[in-house]
């Protein structure tokens, strides 16, 4: 292990899309170097994803999907060699607890591969709150 994944934040927006739902978002991840020869870095994952959900009885639902995007790494290093972008794929699984029609709490796990050489494999656990609302008309018009 070269890095310890520290705290991060994710923001995503999802909408029904034919079968399942499509999402887009950004996630900020922070990595602290465990070894001296590797740099610490922050990474911004800009992604699009698709997945399908299954609503369990009562208030629970389960979602499984994948995300793809660009992992933008910003190193705490010398000027001129301080950033890198690489393609990433992630598998996502999420359990939602619906508190109401609008609000839900969720726990989400992901396994992500960033296609550097060698590959950068990470895993993470995210907890958060989700809001559900009807798409505004302008957004519905765009998506159609």
């Amino acid at each position: 292990m070269h890095w310890q994944k520290a705290s991060g934040i994710t923001f995503a927006a999802a909408t029904p899309f034919y079968v399942g739902e499509v999402e887009t978002g950004v996630a900020l991840h922070r990595y602290s170097a465990v070894r001296r020869e590797t740099p610490s870095f922050d990474a911004l994952f800009t992604f699009a994803g698709w997945g399908v959900g299954y609503t369990a009885p009562r208030a629970f639902s389960w979602y499984a999907g994948m995300r793809t995007g660009i992992y933008h790494m910003l190193f705490e290093e010398e000027v001129g060699d301080e950033e890198e972008k690489e393609f990433s794929l992630a598998l996502v699984s999420r359990i939602d607890l619906h508190l109401s029609q609008t609000v839900r709490l969720f726990v989400e796990g992901h396994m992500m591969r960033t296609y550097t050489l060698p590959r950068l494999d990470t895993a993470g656990l995210t907890g958060g709150i989700g809001l559900r609302f009807r798409n505004p008309d302008w957004l519905r018009a765009i998506l159609k």
């Binding site: 870095f41 790494m73 190193f75 060699d81 890198e84 296609y115 550097t116 050489l117």
Partner: peptide
């Protein structure tokens, strides 16, 4: 984006260019 950048693993291929 083409894959196989060194990314943060700079110690493996220090001579590899980082623009891809």
């Amino acid at each position: 984006n083409e894959i196989n950048d060194p990314g943060p693993f700079r110690y493996t291929l220090p001579e590899t260019i980082n623009i891809d």
